[in-house]
Amino acid sequence: MNIFRLCGDMSHLAAIIILLLKMWKTRSVAGISGKSQILFATVFTARYLDLFTSFISIYNTCMKVFFIGTVYFTIYLIYMKFKATYDSNHDSFRVEFLIVPVGGLAFLVNHEFAPLEIIWTFSIYLESVAILPQLFMISKTGEAETITSHYLFALGSYRALYLCNWIYRYYAEGFFDLIAVVAGVVQTILYCDFFYLYITKVMKGKKISLPA
């Protein structure tokens, strides 16, 4: 563990807590993409299959349980509890256009042609594009609530911090995982446009409204 990875995990934790607070306080899921949350649930489920078979640390296990628990709770809030406030018309991204190519790529490009490794690779590739339905929804509605912007900023920062973690681990431990790094770079790049809007707008107390 290093400071970059710890900050990344805390940023990820903060994003999930911000999202839950937004939903619970406003009792609304307006502006939140249920499809992205379903993709995140798929990512966590695929990645944490070893939750019960391999023990890394208390921290690792607790975070995995928390991430899996909260993402399914979020889906419950979107599609059941606060269903009336879910904006399905604007949450129209065709996720099959993500899952099929990502699934195929995981079969073709992986470290080892073994079931758990391919499923892990699938979760890495899927995570890099899982935010697309959410960003697509914001571009369709033309705006994002400020708290949703904070959620996205924390979520985007988490993988950017992981990139720093991989740079550190390369020089400190000689550790390098090309698949995770490439997917992490793609994932972070997808947020760049949003980061720009966040820093130029939200930091000045304005709301994000597109086209900027």
Binding site: R5, S54, K64, W120, N165, F175, I179
Partner: peptide, 10 residues
Amino acid sequence: DNNNNNKDEL
């Protein structure tokens, strides 16, 4: 090889 065999990251 240097891949992420020990999967210690979240």
